[in-house]
Structures are given as C-alpha cells and as structure tokens.
C-alpha cells in the first residue's frame, strides 16, 4: 500500500463520518414540489407589474446622486485665480497613478494662483482613474473636487488624458480669467480664509491693460450681452 493510498483511505473514512447536506430552506409541500420547475417565471411575472428601472441612456440622461464621483474639476477663487497650487499631493495620494502635475512659480506678469506656486501642467488620465476620490481628500486648497459628469469614454488614449484646460471650472459670473495679480494687500491666507469675494478694480485694470480683449472683462461682458440681446 503506497503512501497516497493511505491518505485517500483516511479521507474516505473522514467523509463517511460527515453528515449529509441539509438545506435550511423550508421544505416544500407536494404542490410546491410539482410547480418548482416553472417557479422562476413567477419572478418575471411579478416584475411585469413593477415600475421599470431601465434608463434610456443616452436619450435620457438621468442625473446621478449628488455625491456621485464623476469627472474632476479644478476650482477657482471668486476673483478667478486658480485654486490649484501645483503641490502634487493629489498625485501622491492617487492609488492608480492617474494624475500628473508640474508646478511653476507665479510671476508678477503671470499670476495664476494666490501665492508663489501654481500648477503649470495638470493631467488626469481617465483610463487609469478609479474614481476613488482620494485625490480630493488630499487637496489642501479644495482646488480639486469631483463633478457629477460621468460621460468619460472615448475612442483614443490621448483624448482620455484630460489637460488642465479641460478640468478647470468654468468662470463664474464675475470672475476674471487668470492670470492676473492677487487682490492688492492680500496674502494667499486671505484667499484660503474666503476673504476675497470678487475681483477688485485694480485687478480689472490690470487685465484691461494687459489683455484688453479678454472676454471676462466687465466691459467686454457687457458688449457680449448686448450683442446677444440685439
């Protein structure tokens, strides 16, 4: 008798001692037993009379729940400066290595965010992102949040690597497009505390001087509004 036979014998003996399987489901009566093969149709029948859950996407786009993790957005301060400081903490936190950031120095001629540093390159690769939201938790400035936008499919790899301009939040009603100087006399701390609520005249003047055609200047906005009215 070989060793393996020995093992099998032990196993067989053990199996013999084991109790046979007993289901916990209540035992069916004889009628139940007879109808059992077609019982599944009962489920289907029942659902004929329930409200349907099928979504008519893409013809009808149902908004997801408010906290749905959709496409990211890079937010702005109320005066239009970018919130992102290019700190890469989001990239650091990302378990999928989906974010790529390169920072740079703000200069008096090109101030994109309050303080010294801004995100010059910002990419999220939606082929990698798993929408976990860890990046959002990592962001120290609340620059990065998630929108409810879920239509993130496309035919090319490049197309699914979103660049900074694809992720930046649209400019709000009064916001002045960056770059422009900070509100005079403020520090980045004032921005984070929410003390800056809108662009001030000095900033508007600066943009007027450097980019007179900027569409976000109040003068140009007015014209546009008139044009659309007329």
């Amino acid at each position: 008798m070989s060793e393996s036979d020995e093992v099998w014998k032990v196993n067989r003996e053990r199996d013999g001692k084991r109790e046979t399987f007993e289901s916990n489901f209540p035992k069916k009566g004889p009628i139940g037993e007879a109808l059992a093969p077609v019982a599944g149709f009962g489920v289907s029948l029942r659902n004929f009379f329930r409200p349907t859950v099928t979504e008519q996407y893409p013809r009808v786009k149902t908004p997801p729940m408010p906290r749905y993790h959709g496409r990211h957005q890079l937010n702005r301060h109320p005066d239009g400066l970018e919130k992102c400081i290019g700190c890469e903490l989001c990239a650091w936190a990302c378990p999928a290595d989906a974010i790529y950031v390169e920072a740079d120095s703000n200069t008096p001629d090109a101030q994109f965010s309050p303080g010294e540093r801004y995100g010059r390159v910002y990419q999220i690769n939606y082929l990698r992102c798993i929408f976990c939201g860890l990046c959002i938790e990592a962001c120290p400035t609340r620059a990065l949040t998630m929108t409810n936008e879920y239509e993130l499919a496309g035919p090319t790899r490049e197309g699914l690597i979103y660049e900074k301009q694809d992720l930046l939040a649209p400019l709000g009603k009064n916001m002045l497009a960056a770059p422009h100087p900070m509100v005079p006399g403020t520090t980045d701390g004032d921005y984070y505390r929410g003390d800056v609520t809108e662009p001030v005249e000095a900033q508007i003047d600066w943009v007027r001087e450097h980019r007179p055609d900027d569409a976000t200047l109040p003068d140009n906005r007015e014209q546009e509004r008139e044009a659309s009215r007329g």
């Binding site: 290019g86 890469e88 990239a91 650091w92 390169e102 920072a103 740079d104 120095s105 010294e116 540093r117």
Partner: peptide
C-alpha cells in the same frame, strides 16, 4: 524651485 516632488 517647484520643479517636482521627491516621489516623482
């Protein structure tokens, strides 16, 4: 200055 992070 502001070029990268150690983990990069």
């Amino acid at each position: 200055r502001f070029r990268s992070r150690p983990f990069d």
